[in-house]
Amino acid sequence: MLYLYAFARGLGSLPRATGLKERPPELVAVGSLDAVVSRHDRLEQEVAADALVAHAEVVDALMAETDEFVPVRFGTVFEDETSLQNAAAGNEQALEQVLRKVRGRVEFGLHVVRRPGAPVPAPERSGRERLLGKLEQLRAAEDAAELDEPLVRLAVESRRRLLRTPRLLLSAAYLVERPRASEFAERLRELVESRPERLEVLATGPWPPYSFAELEDDLRAA
């Protein structure tokens, strides 16, 4: 079986990382791209922490080698080379499109949660209180979303999701040109410093542009 980490182009050398289950990453040419894969006799379905880390290490190493690659989400497996080739061929255009979008760009993340102790609406109350509780949450999330307006303007593209859980007011991902990455990181640090008291803010990155390289569904369907 082939475990897929990413597609890349013009890769001089292989990513220097251990690989899933310590199987070294290798390249398989698919059309005008290289697939970065490791070979396995069998793979479990379960998501194990060390497997996630191994995946991330390979893709991080790739990010250090090239700025022309499409990271693939954890857990994309092919029966053999033929099924990988078929999937890649069937998604050639989509892959090119994603590559054009993420080339030379990195991702940053921002998460805003309510501080512990801040009230979160309890589910079992009167309908009226429940509705008003939701309204309060929505307002808090919209306030949180305003925090990152300056970041959205600096980014090439951004994704924001409000209230993924009652406490997680905002989750955002930003696609940023590599030359602007340090400026962007600086803005994120400022935002974390100046956040409103009732909120906690986590800034992450630079990441491989996972959130902007959505292909997984198509690859599996092919």
Binding site: H111, V113, R164, L168, V192, E200, V201, A203, T204, G205
Partner: peptide
Amino acid sequence: DHVLASSTPRLDLFAEELGQA
């Protein structure tokens, strides 16, 4: 190693919510 800045040392606050989401 990907944490850029956090307003709290308690990263578990985020981990818990992100796990749920």
